[in-house]
Write a protein that binds this DNA or RNA. Structure first.
Length: 213
DNA sequence: ATCCCGAGGG
DNA sequence: CCCTCTGGAT
């Protein structure tokens, strides 16, 4: 006989908050601009790897204006270890230009404005809005959120946009920003892509994978 | 659907 | 060797 459905998004948040009392990004940043650049660089790359290159990057080109005037090849060499270095170099330089010219040198606190920047789509915009300005505009969906949300039965979709909608409809808006950070931590440490450590998962009892077997 | 791309783990 | 890493643009 099938067990009754215990699973509730509320219970997920409760357990995640207990396990991760201070959810935050592992990226190192000192300003909205640094968070934006670090997040663009973190595409398909570990935060550890990004944190190795950003100190040198920010020390050589501290703000949008200076980066907008940088030699693309010099930037490429600095960020090379993060991968996709040609695309990322172009994106952060152009983002610096646009922010310097159109947004008076300040990173916009607006979803549409952020997504007008090269290399910035929903995920990066959500990270910057919440991290830099405390705005819960949506749920940033990356590889970790996608995997953990699917395993938990919070969505059945593969499409990041639909996954975000599914999460936004089930969780309180006040939890959206932290939800991303907590699911990333869960996905990185426990609900890993390869060998998930289900035995030590704080959501073990409410994970559909182990209910109704 | 495909491309961009290096680093680390297994 | 293969898989994965807080994706985005074409």
């Amino acid at each position: 006989m099938k067990k009754t459905r215990i699973f509730l998004p509320r219970e997920v948040v409760k357990r995640l908050r207990k396990s991760y009392p201070a959810p935050a990004t592992a990226l190192k940043w000192q300003s909205p601009w640094e968070l934006l650049v670090a997040t663009i660089l973190s595409a398909q790359c570990t935060d550890v790897q990004v944190n190795k290159i950003t100190p040198g990057l920010f020390s050589r080109w501290p703000d949008p204006k200076s980066l907008s005037m940088a030699d693309p090849q010099e930037v490429q060499e600095v960020i090379r270890p993060a991968g996709f270095f040609r695309t990322k170099s172009r994106n952060i330089i152009q983002a610096g230009e646009i922010i310097n010219r159109r947004f008076q040198g300040r990173v916009p606190a607006d979803m549409e404005d952020l997504m007008s920047l090269p290399g910035v789509a929903s995920k990066t915009a959500n990270i910057v809005l919440y991290g830099a300005y405390g705005i819960n505009a949506g749920v940033a969906v990356d590889t970790h959120v996608k995997r953990t949300a699917r395993r938990l039965g919070l969505t059945r979709s593969q499409d990041p946009g639909k996954i975000e909608k599914d999460l936004m409809s089930q969780f309180e808006q006040d939890d959206w920003g932290d939800l991303n950070h907590m699911l990333v931590l869960l996905g990185r440490e426990t609900c890993r892509a390869r060998k998930p450590l289900c035995g030590e998962c704080p959501l073990f009892e409410i994970c559909p994978k182990f209910i109704s077997i």
